[in-house]
Nucleic acid binder design. Structure first.
Length: 314
DNA sequence: AACATTTGACCCTC
DNA sequence: GAGGGTCAAATGTT
């Protein structure tokens, strides 16, 4: 994989490398801790601290990358204008009668983002640690099950534009295909790991295998299927990659293995609540940038060919 | 009261 | 015009 850095971003590149190296270091410590819990040195950081450090590393990396990517900023500005336009219109309608008022002219209010990056996962769980609000449901042609539409609950107070669509698989009703559209810009990224650790003190036994998480190939015996992230080129930006890394490395990892806290009872399979010992399998399909990534989360394993080696960025 | 969900209408893209 | 994405009033829940 090769990323070409624009001129003048050498410093950013160094920061990114530094953050990733630090993150890897913390992950290594966490791995050691998980493998040898009885040999813990009291002077070392706790597992929770290490997780926080790792997440901070991701966040700092994203911060550097997104701040150097002006196109995204312009896009956000355009949307905020559209939002204010809609708000103005809403306030004008405030005097109308309650019952189905006269149709409003909502032209220009829709922010359909056909160029925004999307990626899809197939999983038993739809909860990903983020707070979502359902804003719609539609019957889809030739689909047995309706599609549910969710937006980030931080849309209004933090302007987070992330949305997702969840649809039950036809051939396997226990599985849900979740399509994520856009990335979270809100600040609730630490929520998921906290929930995990609080909900199950033995989470590490089936949630994370640091060997596989950080690129060292460990036990593949449980990986019976070939997982993929498919990426298509739409709006190729560097921040796309980093956003995906963030999501895959944090949100998805936590969420899929946190399959037992379900956020949408209307579309959830009731059996999930008692399946802690069962296989958690997820396939990621990413429709996004020009980068090729292969991941698998199966039976609690997170296998990745993606390596956070700084040489990858040269 | 505040927040979340439901659901019909509206709008956009193809 | 069909299909699908989003809005927003009504309703439900905490």
């Amino acid at each position: 994989m090769e990323i070409s850095w624009p001129q003048g971003q050498t410093t950013s590149r160094e920061k990114v490398i530094k953050e990733l190296v630090e993150g890897r270091e913390f992950a290594t410590q966490l791995k050691t801790m998980l493998h040898r819990p009885l040999e813990l040195d009291a002077s070392l950081l706790s597992a929770e601290d290490l997780v926080s450090k790792i997440l901070t590393s991701f966040t700092q990396t994203l911060s550097v990358l997104t701040s150097s990517e002006s196109g995204e900023v312009h896009q956000n500005l355009a949307v905020s204008h559209a939002d204010s336009h809609c708000d103005d219109r809403r306030s004008e309608d405030s005097g109308e009668s309650r019952k189905r008022p006269a149709p409003k002219d909502r032209r220009g209010c829709y922010k359909r983002r056909k160029t925004t990056q999307t990626w899809t996962i197939v999983s038993e769980a739809t909860d990903d640690g983020h707070a979502w609000r359902k804003y719609g449901q539609k019957e889809i042609l030739n689909a047995k099950h309706p599609r549910s539409y969710f937006r980030c609950t931080r849309k209004h107070d933090q302007g987070c534009r992330a949305t997702k669509q969840v649809q039950r698989m036809e051939n396997d009703p226990q599985m849900y295909q979740t399509t994520y559209i856009g990335h979270h810009t809100c600040k609730d990224t630490l929520k998921a790991p906290q929930i995990i650790m609080e909900s199950d003190p033995n989470w590490e036994s089936y949630i994370i295998n640091p060997d596989s998480m950080w690129g060292k190939q460990a036990d593949h015996a449980l990986s019976s299927s070939s997982p993929t992230i498919k990426q298509e080129s739409k709006e190729d930006t560097l921040s796309d990659l980093t956003d995906n890394l963030s999501s895959l490395g944090t949100n998805y990892l936590w969420s899929d293995l946190k399959a037992f806290e379900l956020s949408d009872p209307a579309i959830m399979s009731p059996k999930l609540g008692s399946d802690n010992g069962d296989v958690v399998s997820t396939m990621y399909s990413c429709t996004d940038t020009g980068f090729d990534l292969d991941f698998v989360v199966k039976s609690g394993r997170f296998d990745s060919d993606f390596n956070f080696d700084e040489s990858e960025f040269i």
